[in-house]
Simulated scan of single mutants.
Amino acid sequence: MDAALGALNIIPAWRLVGRVAEVLQTAKPDDFNTFACDSLELGLEGITGDRHGGFSRFSGGREPYYPRGTEMCNERQLSILAPDELGLIAERMDIDRLEAGWIGGNIVIEGMPHLSLIPPRTRLVFAGGAVVRVDGDNVPCRSAGKSIAAQFADRSGLDLAFPKLARRLRGLVGYVEKPGTILPGEEVTAHIPEQWIYQPES
């Protein structure tokens, strides 16, 4: 066991600073699309009235280990995106742009390279005091693809292309650890935890 620990390549905890480019929320609870707003009010339940808000949610296709519709902790209160990754997805899909609101984004952060690869347990600490805990990367789904396809009626197959072309570029999902207000333009610091690759002994 000691030898295994000694062989670990441990990357120390570190910090990364970026800036909030945009905040968005739904116009009505059942709407998938989100729209730019002046500020984002976060409670422990997420965004009040948002379709992804709440302390719990029901399992779906992402949780094959539970029967569909099982009530579970809601670790997907917020969708966090990056402008450069949205641009790369658009390039891969051969469309002129991809707006964060088309795929239900809530917080767009610039200045953090490879945002979608930021590891779970990272704390996003916003200058105004709000803290969002990262659960992990957001696996792209066909629902978001359909929303994109609706913007380009002259193109076919975009709904199926998005899940394939947006993998590890679709941003992060997270939950509110400390309530507060997030404003466009404010600084945000990612407190990235110590990391290593877990590999069972052979």
Rank of each mutant, 00 (worst) to 15 (best):
A4V: 10
P12N: 07
A13N: 09
R15E: 13
E22Q: 11
Q25R: 15
T26S: 14
T26Y: 01
K28N: 08
D31C: 08
D38M: 02
S39V: 05
H52T: 03
S56N: 08
G60I: 05
G61H: 00
E63W: 03
Y66Q: 12
G69S: 08
G69D: 07
M72D: 08
M72F: 01
C73T: 14
R76E: 12
I80Q: 12
L81A: 01
L81P: 06
E85L: 12
L86P: 05
G87D: 13
G87I: 02
L88T: 10
M93K: 05
D96P: 06
G105C: 00
I109C: 13
E110M: 13
E110K: 04
H114K: 09
G129H: 07
V132A: 08
R133W: 02
V134Y: 06
P140V: 08
G145T: 05
D154R: 01
A161T: 03
F162G: 08
P163R: 12
R170T: 04
Y175D: 02
V176G: 14
L183W: 12
P184I: 12
P184E: 10
E186L: 03
E187I: 14
I192V: 05
P193A: 13
E194V: 00
Q195F: 02
Y198H: 07
Q199E: 10
S202F: 09
